[in-house]
Each structure stands twice: as C-alpha cells, then as structure tokens.
Amino acid sequence: MTQPTHEEEVLLDDIYNDTPTDVMVRGKKFSVRWLKAGTRRRLTSMLLKSGDETKVSCKAASLIVLNGHFKIMLLHWLLWRWYYYIRQYGEEELTELIATAKKKIPLRQYWINTTLLTAMRDTMMMMTRAEVSAFRPELSGGNTEKSAKSGLG
C-alpha cells in the first residue's frame, strides 16, 4: 500500500473541515459547502412540486447557494427570481454549480445511520427462542440438524 500524496492529504483535510468549493458562473464566484439535510429536503420537495421545468435549475441553484434553514426561509423566494428573471442564468451555466453540490452530500454517514436505525426498529418481527436456537447453528456453520437447504431432495 502506498502513502497518500500531499495533494490527496490536502483534499482529505478540506473534506473534514468542510472547506467550500468555489464555482464560477458567468464571472461570479459561488462557494459550495456540504449540503445540509434541510437543503436536501427542500431540493427534493421543489423537484416533486415543480410545475415550470424552466425554473428548476435557478430554484436549485438558489437552495444550494443559501444552504441553511433560515437563509432559505428568508431569501429563497427572492434569490431564485433574481437568478431566473434578472440574471437570466441558463441551464448550461448552472450545470457546474449543481454538479459540485451533488458531490457535497455526505452519503457514507447517512448509509451507516440508516443501517443502524433499521436494526433498531421496534416493528421488526421478534423471533421465539425455538426459532433463534434453530437459526444460530446455521450462522456459525455447525448444523446440528439437517435443514431444507442441505437436504438432497
């Protein structure tokens, strides 16, 4: 195994510290940080309820740039209209901003938490002692009885 290069270490440090990634859109620099859960929730809701497809990219760009509950509540209605009607950003101009935001979703922790929480549900079917005693030897590899899986017929 090889040691990481200096550039790779800097990249990992930027990930840990939530260092913003700068994206240029028509000469203006936007900083994109890790997307917060509320921002992802609003993006999903906006995509599901969107009536006019031409406004979707500007609405998404506004949510990505604001990226915070109170900022979104106070400024989203104004900012997406600014992008759409005043600045008139096109789809091709906002692609890099949206692609960078896609990379800023912390999925690994989400998957781990989802897996752990699924195992903790109280609605899962509980096994009886007899089912557990029949199931446990198969897990360890020591079959005490022949099961349907190991039978010849």
Rank of each mutant, 00 (worst) to 15 (best):
Pro106Leu: 15
Ser140Cys: 00
Val65Asp: 06
Ala134Val: 00
Arg121Trp: 07
Leu152Gly: 13
Met125Leu: 06
Glu53Lys: 12
Arg136Pro: 00
Gly68Asn: 11
Leu107Pro: 02
Arg129Val: 02
Arg42Ala: 12
Tyr16Asp: 13
Leu117Tyr: 13
Lys104Pro: 03
Thr19Phe: 13
Ala130His: 12
Val65Gln: 07
Lys29Pro: 00
His6Thr: 06
Tyr89Cys: 07
Trp111Asp: 03
Asp18Cys: 09
Trp82Gln: 10
Thr114Pro: 00
Tyr89Ser: 01
Thr144Met: 04
Arg87Gln: 11
Val65Trp: 04
Arg129Pro: 06
Met125Asp: 01
Trp80Asn: 03
Gly68Lys: 01
Ser50Met: 15
Phe30Ser: 07
Ile105Gly: 06
Leu117Gln: 14
Tyr110Val: 11
Leu35Cys: 04
Leu66Tyr: 13
Asp52Ser: 03
Arg108Glu: 10
Asn67Asp: 12
Pro4Lys: 13
Gly27His: 10
Lys103Asp: 14
Pro20Asn: 07
Gly38Ser: 06
Met127Arg: 08
Trp80Leu: 00
Glu138Pro: 05
Tyr84Gln: 02
Glu91Asp: 12
Lys149Phe: 09
Asp14His: 12
Gln88Asn: 12
Asn67Cys: 06
Ile112Leu: 11
Phe70Ser: 09
Ala99Phe: 02
Ile86His: 13
Met24His: 14
Thr144Ala: 01
Ala119Glu: 07
Val25Phe: 06
Glu145Arg: 09
Lys71Val: 02
Leu63Phe: 01
His76Pro: 14
